[in-house]
Simulated scan of single mutants.
Amino acid sequence: MEWISSLQKAITYMEEHLLEEINYEDVAKHVHISSYEFHRAFSFLTGTTANAYIRNRRLSLAGREIVDTDIRITDIALKYGYDTPESFTKAFTRFHGISPSVAREGNAKLVLFNPLVIKITIDGGKTMEYKIVQAEAKKFIALVRSFKTEIINDEANHDVANFWAECNAKQMLSPIWMLREDCFS
């Protein structure tokens, strides 16, 4: 549990120093972990590097500031650690999918990258009685679409619901329903 506590302290430190020039080595030093071990542990637990986390948080906050204030985009770029407006525009566009000037115009959808909070849930470890039953062969009919697994549980993601709405709107379920064997008996 000490690792989890150290990583949460590291995240808190990054959040408190986002407007300063920091990187994962500075964060590792702050929580008294070797930079190599910190980099490995942070990447393993969060799925991103600490430097990418810092960059994503800065770009998320910069997007909000561009939309909510009249501060010049160049000043926002400098505030969030970019040496030139061009480097900021390139990173901003890659992250948000639109340029800062388009975001400033309004009605733009920006990417929100919230601060990480580490929560550990351990489940299982209990005995369960079960029985294996051999069943006869079955046939399945399906409508298939791929979804990004990392965002399916995101409350803002409506991809699965939109897929079902599309299936209903295009009446794709009726022909499949009619293919069921028990419909003909």
Rank of each mutant, 00 (worst) to 15 (best):
F88H: 02
G106R: 12
T121Q: 07
K119M: 09
F95L: 10
P85Q: 14
F88M: 06
K126H: 10
E129M: 03
L112W: 04
I118A: 04
I118F: 15
M128T: 12
I118R: 06
T127F: 09
I122W: 07
K126M: 05
L112I: 15
F88A: 07
G106F: 13
S101N: 14
Y130S: 06
V102L: 05
T127G: 09
L116C: 10
V102F: 00
A103E: 01
P100R: 14
L110V: 03
I120V: 10
K109G: 03
T93P: 01
N107A: 12
A91T: 06
I120R: 15
K126F: 00
H96T: 05
N107P: 02
F92V: 04
K90C: 07
I118Y: 15
K109Q: 13
I120Y: 15
Y130E: 04
A108C: 12
G106E: 10
T121A: 14
V111M: 11
L116W: 09
G97R: 14
L110C: 06
S99Y: 04
K90E: 08
S87E: 03
P100N: 08
F92N: 01
L112H: 08
R104L: 05
P115K: 04
E86Q: 10
P115D: 03
T93E: 02
N114D: 10
G124S: 02
S99R: 15
V117A: 14
K90W: 07
I120M: 15
E86Y: 01
P85S: 13
N107D: 12
I122R: 15
G97E: 08
A103L: 01
R94Y: 05
L112F: 08
I98H: 14
T89V: 02
N107Y: 15
Y130D: 01
L116Q: 04
T127P: 01
T127V: 11
A103G: 11
E105T: 15
A91Y: 01
Y130Q: 07
A108D: 11
F113T: 03
G106H: 13
F88K: 03
T121C: 08
F113K: 00
I122N: 11
I98T: 13
F88V: 01
S99N: 08
N114Y: 12
T127L: 10
T89E: 07
A108E: 15
L110N: 02
V111C: 13
E129N: 06
I120L: 11
I120D: 13
T93G: 05
E105H: 11
M128Q: 06
G125K: 06
G97M: 13
S99E: 13
E86C: 00
P85N: 08
T89W: 00
K126T: 05
N114R: 11
T121F: 14
F95D: 11
F113E: 01
